[in-house]
Write a protein that binds this DNA or RNA. Structure first.
Lengths: 215, 215
DNA sequence: AAACTGCCAACTGTCGACAGTTGACAACGT
DNA sequence: ACGTTGTCAACTGTCGACAGTTGGCAGTTT
């Protein structure tokens, strides 16, 4: 009575596990027991193993031979390396977006920026969800599927760090200003400027993460 | 009599299959039959499945649900997307290398360039192996593990195209000149120039591949 | 003759069980 | 008391078998 309706068991397991890892339900440093989790998900070890390997290839799990899979807890060196990769990818995306964006893209970007400010002024904390949406929208405007794919993976890996990220009003304002400036550069078709702003933005975010890591 | 000496069966299968895919022993477009290949390798389907999924995550195989794994044969759009990613990564690497390179790195880079020219003048064709070695050495000089990892994957994916790449003396000379110029820029610590040269170099290689694809 | 329908073989997806390895604990010797 | 060695439980790595799905082929109908 478990006929694959849409996704294979392995695929479903990937989604469930990814969610649990990203939300911190499975905390960094902890191990994933194959039999235990398989039972909890009501599937066999085979599909679960595939799911684990898949998440490992996304960087959300670390495999240790004969020991199992661990949720990586990230040190500052790892954060730096991660942001070097992210900067390379997103700066390139910003350049491409500046030269390829359509009017629809611009509307979407403005929309996300506006919603971010609305959301923030409504008294909430830093709107992670909309921050992600902004970068996602920008990537789409670049129209480079391979780059988009890699950015998605890196951003996901960064989300894993956010659980320990402290909110800072100054940082939030600076980020939103960066976003606005990025949109302007893209609107003007100024690739060089878009890249520069993106680099500054990401370097700021990286610094913020490094400081909130040493606490 | 098959105790895991160093690598798991899945790991060994990954190496064997990767070799077979990259050399074209398993030609693009063909399917990988799980039971057949498993028998040929003398292992069970479990480890082989893991190997297949792993190679799929590297982009060397494409998975189709309920149909199997296929060696991707690449169209021009895919080539362009691939090179946009590669350009983003390697330009960033070139910049980082320009600011981080040590004297040892410079020696190695010069060494590879010299060997390329020697090899070519010895009457052989375009020295793929040394071309790869050059880019690898450059990446190492950038000292950014995450970027290095991604570059390795993309380059591997590009190698899959080389089987259909025609040799062109003009292209070979231009490439070797590009390499020399890159080393100079890195030696001078000129990040902007390194990035520019790398971009030009890769755009040339990409164009070469596109033309030899339409034939 | 062309299109449709039902059947069939081949293959993937999944499962439960066995074998080998790892890290930890306890017993022993120094 | 400390280091060493032997033992053991837990877990991963691997295997063979079964179930479900897919694409193709033959038979049938219009």
């Amino acid at each position: 009575m478990t006929p694959p309706l849409h996704l294979s068991l392995a695929g479903q397991a990937v989604d469930v596990l990814r969610e649990q890892v990203l939300t911190g339900e499975i905390p960094p440093g902890s191990r994933v027991n194959e039999v235990e989790v398989a039972q909890k998900l009501g599937i066999s070890r085979g599909p679960l193993r595939e799911a684990i390997r898949h998440l490992a290839s996304e960087g959300l799990l670390q495999l240790v031979p004969h020991r199992g899979a661990f949720v990586p807890d990230t040190d500052s060196d790892e954060v730096k390396a991660l942001f070097e990769l992210r900067t390379a990818l997103e700066c390139a995306a910003a350049e491409l977006a500046a030269s390829r964006r359509t009017d629809v893209d611009l509307v979407r970007l403005h929309e996300v920026c506006a919603e971010s400010r609305r959301d923030y002024k409504a008294g909430r904390q830093f709107p992670y969800r909309l921050d992600l949406a902004f970068h996602q929208t920008l990537i789409d405007a670049a129209r480079s599927p391979r780059i988009a794919e890699q950015v998605r993976l890196v951003q996901q890996r960064v989300v894993l760090l956010r659980s320990t990220l402290a909110d800072d009003p100054g940082h939030t304002h600076a980020s939103m200003d960066d976003h606005d400036e990025l949109v302007k550069a893209i609107e003007d078709g100024d690739a060089a400027r878009a890249s520069t702003v993106m680099r500054r933005h990401l370097s700021r975010v990286c610094a913020q993460m490094l400081t909130s890591l040493n606490r």
